[in-house]
Design a protein around this nucleic acid. Structure first.
Lengths: 376, 376
DNA sequence: ATGAAAGCGCTAACAT
DNA sequence: ATGTTAGCGCTTTCAT
């Protein structure tokens, strides 16, 4: 029988938000009980719970995340640190994270890092437990001191697509990925295979990200080549900024070589796009005159019929988020290092080399796909 | 109840986080003064301020966002509602938002909406002032009742790439965009121009998003056609799901028409990709046999040499965020409707029609660009 | 200009 | 099982 906020008078009085005490009063119970109902405590009689639920309904009560967070000591939101948010592979992972976290009742705060300085800035802020209940780091190597600070702060952290000793992480085997891509090309009969990617980078430093996947993929590339008895030719390994444009430039050089490659393994699909356009600009048909394979399997790869090494992007984010939630519940995650599968997706951008170079009679059906040929 | 499950390390005396009272004690002032320094109040003597600053340094104090938020009544974080986060145009806008908000000291909480139900769910949650200080809605039409609830809750809201009466919004003129694209094609001499896009959609409803931009672009398309004295042929206007694959399918049909179009205006760059691959699959060269223009100017458009109508994506997000910050400071934003410019970027995917259909001797240099031709 | 004290709305420890 | 109460760490009057 509570007065519906002075209904009689015409002017709507400021409809003061109901607080937990209002609900308690309305239900005729203590605030503790309401809190218990809110947090799903088992120590509440079904009948009481129902009374509280009704009161909540009547008062249109909405709990304050803020107050709950303060009281609890940690908010119901997690921070996620990503480098270059707009890159397709990154945003796909992010979507996976957000989806899972949302279902688990956590808000996702996104920190985008585009310079080492931003990385340092955000990494510092995230050691504050009142800012986020936990942290998910995607594809971004952290400095040793930053990892230490996170640990010292007791901050629950999971890594996605990066590794660091002692941290729960969801990754793929990039070395194996490099091997898979290269072997796919070898199986088609290629013998002169180039690699186009980012600079190998060292370890993360004050002024460097130190991304590691390229280096690993190159290791796999070399390994596959060596296993096939083909000497690694350093002039076929090129690196430049992480962009299609840069990849295109590198490809241009490669194609001008006296003995140009018949196939190119691009470090990621975006760079593969650059390779494709450079090939086109040079009038070299793909896969007729050049085979191209990328990495990641982003959406455009499908549209362009790009062969690639697929990794479960969205799922990696989802898995990482799920593991963080486990951590936040006080459970432990195991194994610390979770590996997701890699798979070669052969589309139309790879085929046997122009003139039967070596053996291998093209095991593939030589599938070809739709694409774009502006200069036809 | 001593320590929660921390990281692997065993020992480590709980380094109790310094609170504002610690700083006050260390500086020999009251907590109120520390708070004033923290919040840049002018009512603090310079000398006192310095003492406090030093104390903060000594105690390595970090203010609690949570406590400050509770006390203030609203957190230093803003919510951003986006549909289909992984779409390139959306994530570009999001990056702009995050950048500006970060600089202004706000955290960005991202809510990704992929179904009307998710829209409703999140829109409801966001009427809680203790959850976010303000809301930025990107490219997502809200139901009337949802807008009303936001207003009733006194929630500061800005819109980006969507319109709603009474709300501050940063948009482009899609009608004009449709006109620009179509006119570009007309100027090249095309007379048979098709449109490929999303279903026009009505207004947002319980089970529908009601995206509006397609409808507007079609209006512009018709307007340009009519202005050029060309009758609008309904069979040339096709729509399907927002994906390159669907666009490809629609294009396939279009190209099989007895009197097929010589040019296609795709609702967005992603769909233009689909158009391109369908053209390729049909063995029709672009732009030799078919001209294609998209909308947005996402990164891949550059790599593929796709002509398009550019809109400032990242900037739209940045502008929206800047306006929200103004709102949060209690200032008013004006004009309510902020319009960003549109511009045709002619790349290699548009050229005069195959056989000089009508007049216009191709004002453009007929620029062509790199692309991908897997079937050559 | 600065200190003291009253909340902000909730959780959790402690009673009962 | 449920009520009571003491904080969580800060901002903000209100005095002084």
């Amino acid at each position: 029988m509570t007065d519906r906020q002075g209904a009689a008078d015409g002017q709507r009085a400021a409809p003061r938000r109901a607080r937990i005490a209002d609900v308690a009063a309305d239900a005729g119970v203590g605030v503790g009980t309401v809190s218990r109902v809110l947090n799903g405590s088992p120590h509440v009689r079904a009948a009481t719970r129902q009374r509280v639920l009704d009161a909540i309904e009547r008062t249109s009560y909405r709990p304050s995340q803020l107050a709950a967070g303060l009281s609890r000591g940690t908010p119901r939101s997690v921070a996620i640190l990503v480098p270059f948010l707009t890159r397709p592979s990154v945003v796909a992972r992010l979507a996976g994270v957000i989806e899972v976290l949302g279902v688990e009742g956590y808000d996702t705060i996104v920190f985008n890092v585009e310079t080492p300085a931003q990385r340092d800035h955000h990494a510092y802020l995230l050691t504050e437990r009142h800012r986020a209940a936990g942290v998910i780091v995607i594809s971004l190597p952290l400095l040793r001191e930053q990892r230490a600070a996170l640990i010292a702060a007791g901050m629950p952290v999971v890594l996605v697509d990066v590794a660091a000793p002692g941290f729960p992480r969801t990754v793929v085997d990039d070395v194996r990925g490099g091997e898979l891509a290269t072997r796919h090309l070898l199986d088609l009969g290629h013998r002169r295979i180039a690699f186009v990617g980012d600079p190998r980078g060292g370890r993360p430093a004050r002024d460097e990200f130190g991304f590691r996947s390229t280096a690993d993929r190159i290791i796999g590339y070399r390994r596959a080549l060596t296993a096939a008895g083909i000497p690694v030719d350093p002039t076929l390994i090129r690196s430049g900024p992480h962009s299609a444009a840069a990849a295109a430039e590198l490809t241009r050089d490669l194609l001008r070589l006296p003995d140009p490659p018949t196939a190119i393994f691009a470090n990621c699909d975006t760079q593969a796009l650059g390779v494709l356009s450079a090939a086109d600009a040079a009038g070299i048909p793909v896969p007729g005159g050049l085979s191209v394979i990328g990495f990641d399997d982003i959406e455009t790869a499908v549209h362009l019929g790009l062969s690639t090494v697929r990794q479960p992007l969205r799922e990696s984010g989802a898995r990482g988020a799920a593991r963080l939630c486990r951590l936040l519940r006080g459970e432990t995650v195991t194994p610390l290092r979770e590996e997701l599968p890699l798979e070669v997706i052969a589309r139309g951008s790879t085929a046997p080399p122009p003139s039967p170079a070596a053996g291998a009679p093209a095991p593939d059906g030589g599938g070809r796909r739709a694409g774009y040929q502006p200069n036809a």
